[in-house]
């Protein structure tokens, strides 16, 4: 990569049939989530992150795309050989701004799934617990506890 990223994460993951919560509507919905992120603590302003939800039962009413417009904090924590990366900032859904917090876990063991431990868009959406995603879809770019 050339530039060393001491703490950051690259995510290209999809998880199907998740039971998620729409906080604003106080309703649980089932659907597919796609996570995309490329974030690094040294390049916060160039970092990108998005979450797309597609409701598999009522597509028209609950589908949304959340795109971060400012990433304010990236914190890495080693857990054995694994790495937990917490990303915080703000983003937009249909032009409305929310703050968010996402926690990604890159697991080293080839047989273990990677995990999106939590993804909360404050006042709007909560993926409602940990979501397993295929091994290799979350890659910690660096895991220094800065």
């Amino acid at each position: 990569m050339g530039i060393l990223c001491p703490c950051g994460v690259s995510v290209n993951a999809c998880s199907k049939n998740n039971n998620v919560e729409f906080i604003s509507k106080c309703k649980m919905r089932r659907g597919n989530i796609t996570y995309l992120a490329n974030v690094c603590v040294t390049t916060l302003n160039k970092s990108t992150l998005s979450l797309e939800f597609v409701d598999t039962k009522r597509p028209c009413s609950n589908n949304f795309l959340f795109t971060a417009n400012a990433i304010t904090s990236i914190v890495c924590k080693k857990d054995g050989q694994n790495c937990v990366v917490t990303v915080e900032g703000t983003g937009l859904v249909n032009g409305r701004q929310y703050s968010f917090k996402a926690v990604f876990r890159d697991q080293i063991a080839p047989a273990a799934n990677d995990i999106v431990q939590s993804f909360v868009i404050k006042g709007f959406f909560d993926q409602n617990g940990a979501v397993c995603v295929p091994q290799g879809s979350i890659i910690a770019l660096g895991c220094q506890e800065l």
Binding site: G2, I3, L4, C5, P6, V41, T42, T43, L44, K46
Partner: peptide
């Protein structure tokens, strides 16, 4: 030239080249 990331004092953690 390596430009240190914001808040860093070393350029190993570079934000730009």
């Amino acid at each position: 030239v390596k430009v240190a990331g914001e808040g860093f004092f070393i350029t190993n953690a570079a934000q730009d080249l």
